[in-house]
Amino acid sequence: MSQGVILDSPRLEDGADLWRIARDSRTLDLNSSYSYLLWCRDYAATSIVARAADTAARTPVGFVTGYTRPADPRTLLVWQVAVDQDYRGRGLAAAMLDALTLRVRDRLGIHLVETTITPDNAASQRLFTSFAERHGAAVAHEVLFEAASFPEDGHEPEVLYRIGPIGAGRP
């Protein structure tokens, strides 16, 4: 990861920046701006932001949002990962994912990471496959939501990636 970035917990005032980063990614399903504000309020403990260290405002330049699954609180579901265009290609997404997972593992005892990825999203597939390799964890895949489950035309299926166990002492 490059210098000049601070990894931190999201704050309520970060919601608008997270929405902007998600919108500008052109790959994520964009949620309402309201949902990003709620995410920063209610799921800050299971999410992370990367802040530009060279600005007085410490503006967010990337984020990972996640939550522990109500039916399995030892599983972290990673909802979205996004990095501002100017900060891509520096390993920031991997650094945020590693830092968040280790923090949540140590605080909440998670042992599995889940995410969903559409079949056309090669970058996310590489991110989570390399994450599993770095952590010495197995990866299982299965379709969680078929394309027909979505109300809009053209949505691809969402493939569930289950990564784990995430063991102590790993990066």
Rank of each mutant, 00 (worst) to 15 (best):
D14Q: 04
A94T: 14
P10G: 09
G4A: 04
A93D: 04
V83A: 03
W39S: 15
T101Y: 02
R134S: 11
S33P: 13
A140H: 11
V49Q: 01
D42G: 12
L92W: 02
R26S: 05
P165S: 11
A57D: 08
A45L: 14
A138E: 13
G89K: 02
F63S: 03
Q85W: 12
L160H: 08
A50P: 00
F63D: 00
A94W: 13
F150R: 13
G66S: 08
V104K: 04
V113L: 07
A132G: 01
T116I: 10
T59R: 08
D84N: 08
L30H: 00
Y161L: 10
A93I: 04
A22G: 02
R88A: 08
Q80M: 04
D153N: 15
G91R: 05
S2H: 09
R23M: 09
R134T: 08
G136R: 10
E158D: 09
F150H: 07
E158W: 01
G154W: 00
T55M: 07
I166K: 05
A168V: 15
L7Q: 06
T115E: 00
F128P: 01
A53T: 10
S2W: 04
H141I: 14
S124Y: 00
A52Q: 09
V81W: 00
S25K: 00
A56I: 13
V5Y: 02
A82Q: 01
R88P: 04
D84K: 02
P171F: 15
S33D: 14
R51F: 06
R162A: 11
D42V: 10
Y87N: 08
V61P: 01
S124M: 01
D72W: 12
Q80D: 04
A148Y: 06
D72P: 10
V113E: 03
E114D: 09
R134E: 01
H111W: 09
T46R: 07
L144F: 10
A132K: 03
D29K: 10
L112K: 09
S2M: 15
A45T: 13
A22C: 07
I117E: 02
Q85R: 11
V83T: 05
R105I: 10
D29N: 09
R105C: 05
A45P: 06
D17R: 12
T118N: 06
H141N: 14
P157N: 10
V49L: 05
I48Q: 02
T115W: 01
E146Q: 07
A71F: 15
R170L: 12
T129P: 01
S35A: 12
A93P: 02
A137V: 10
P60L: 05
D72M: 15
E158S: 07
P10Y: 03
S124F: 03
A148C: 10
I163Q: 04
G4I: 08
L97K: 05
S32G: 05
H135Q: 08
A57R: 07
I48H: 01
A147N: 07
E13L: 10
V81N: 02
R90N: 14
T27K: 04
T116A: 08
V104R: 04
C40N: 03
R103L: 08
R26K: 11
T129G: 04
H155P: 04
I163T: 10
E13M: 15
S149V: 15
A82F: 01
P165Q: 14
E152P: 06
D98E: 09
L18Y: 02
W19S: 05
Y36E: 03
F128H: 02
S124V: 05
